[in-house]
Design a protein around this nucleic acid. Sequence first.
DNA 1: CTACTTTGTTGGAGCGCTCCAATCCTGGTC
DNA 2: GACCAGGATTGGAGCGCTCCAACAAAGTAG
Lengths: 335, 335
Amino acid sequence: MDRPTMEDVAARAGVSRALVSLVMRGSPKVSEHRRAAVLRAADELGYAPHAMARSLASRTSHFLGVMVSDLHNAFWAEIVDGLDACARDLGFELVINTGGRRPARERQALASLLSFRPAGIALLGPVVPATAIAGAAMQAPLVLVSRSSRLSSVDTVNDNGQTGSGLAVDHLVSLGHKDIVHIDGGGGSQAAPRRTGYLAAMRRHGLAPSVVGSEYTDTAGAKAVRELLDARGHHLPTAIVAANDFNAIGAISALEEAGLRVPADVSVVGYDNTSLAALRHVSLTTVDQPRTEMGRLAAEALIQRVRGERTDPVRHLLRPSLVVRATTGPPLRNF
Amino acid sequence: MDRPTMEDVAARAGVSRALVSLVMRGSPKVSEHRRAAVLRAADELGYAPHAMARSLASRTSHFLGVMVSDLHNAFWAEIVDGLDACARDLGFELVINTGGRRPARERQALASLLSFRPAGIALLGPVVPATAIAGAAMQAPLVLVSRSSRLSSVDTVNDNGQTGSGLAVDHLVSLGHKDIVHIDGGGGSQAAPRRTGYLAAMRRHGLAPSVVGSEYTDTAGAKAVRELLDARGHHLPTAIVAANDFNAIGAISALEEAGLRVPADVSVVGYDNTSLAALRHVSLTTVDQPRTEMGRLAAEALIQRVRGERTDPVRHLLRPSLVVRATTGPPLRNF
DNA sequence: CTACTTTGTTGGAGCGCTCCAATCCTGGTC
DNA sequence: GACCAGGATTGGAGCGCTCCAACAAAGTAG
């Protein structure tokens, strides 16, 4: 398992170690003759550069550290796709980590990422305190996805949750709904703007808003609906704007268990357009965040900073869009 | 962004660089007095060790490279959980990568992981050719999850797909089903043993097997059912053993669209027990792989090799279990 | 034919750390 | 008070690489 070094390659090719280094970095100032010899020697020896030694010596690195808050949620996978595509185009690799949405573990994960001295750091939906982010931002260029910050040293990429819930409400109103309830995401990330957007849209349409507290899980969604059923009796709303897709699916289950049909009796809109929503069995009307684009913008922002092309912070606020599927329709009853 | 080095800490604490190194590595042979001084200096300077320099100098590393074939599939997230928990216990960190199920990209991802000289490598459901795996195994201890290998230098962790499908068939037979169809996963990983297990179980029960070719997606599952409907007309099977959960959900949608009820008309069993299956709206009877355990065993096997405690390959073949939910029941009709 | 570029190549220093042999202290012992 | 064992501390070499100044070789111009 003792892998060959540049020295070995150099010896075999009959050149100096520095020349091998030049070849490995694709320098143009190497004669074709020598380049071929070095490449052949490297190949014969099974030589592959040592990334650590390289970045130690050059005091730069060509990879970005990415901390994904939750590997279980495929939502982040598409952000990573965008991040990866863009980073790759610009000559960077991705090194991923996770903190499992637990602040203490995320802190460790962040420290571990930092200990590799990446060119930059992307935090996807982190739950660590702002001070930890500020600390990390002092060590490397940093971009935040799905979380905002006022620090001038960090860039952020978010979708406009306010606009998103607005789209959901507008859609329902245009179908003829008037009694629309919002099941909210509690303290979850982005729950606040979604709630605000719902309230603003209802006000804009001259309708009375109604918010039920909940969380980003399907069981919480089901629970919220059951509470709604208990509280409102037969005066159920005709439509629900759920906190996110999981929550929406829980809500739908509870509605169906109560003998109500979706969308005939109650229309439901989710948020996030997870792969779940697209399943034909679910076919959820939902708000889509341009995830790949978000990842791409995050990588771009990060690399601009890495290259020193920009020092002012960038705040991307992307426009979500509505994906209409089978869980919304005109209200068929009038309680 | 010029971070402090050991030299800086040493200067501030009034000791030598070597002593700082000892403190950082938690050596017992440092006086409490000095240790405290070093720690304080490090804290004041915001010093954090440079993982690369450390592993370059020590020629060992304390992290494991993990290539996840597909970040979109939460299945792997739980394997990573197990891997992470065990690795952490034994003093290792995880560095994650992905190749998006594309052989070329996975190759790159593997090379990139290797270039960091990790202590070991875990490949989760890789689709790269066996030769690439053999090559990687020469560079670092390697464990394969959800993929088998005959190489004596690599360890493997798999669930017993054959047993798994057998459990599904047994369950259905015990409910009274006789006409049980298997929708298979085509060339997908683990599709073959699942098919074999189905065939063996049907034979064991003296029933006639019937396999429909398909893939690991919900649209493929739906398509397979529609083909079944077309081909069999009113002679539909009373139960289906699907390739995996996604496939099962597609199958259920297609059945429902055709006016059939699940499980009243047709029972459906999935495979993998993804978080999807547990959603109350889905509530799919499925075969569970002990994922966390698989991750744990993978980490354990890897670290044993890293430590040189073992050179013989280990082949873990875990016993899956059946999770009965709402998509299976006794057959209510006799076509 | 000498002086000056240009192009290709090289040795050496050094990145931040670990590891080892050598050194420096203590306190205990006779 | 000299001696020693043992622990605590240190300088130096070196990990595999990059970078730079220096240099050799081959043109190019005067």
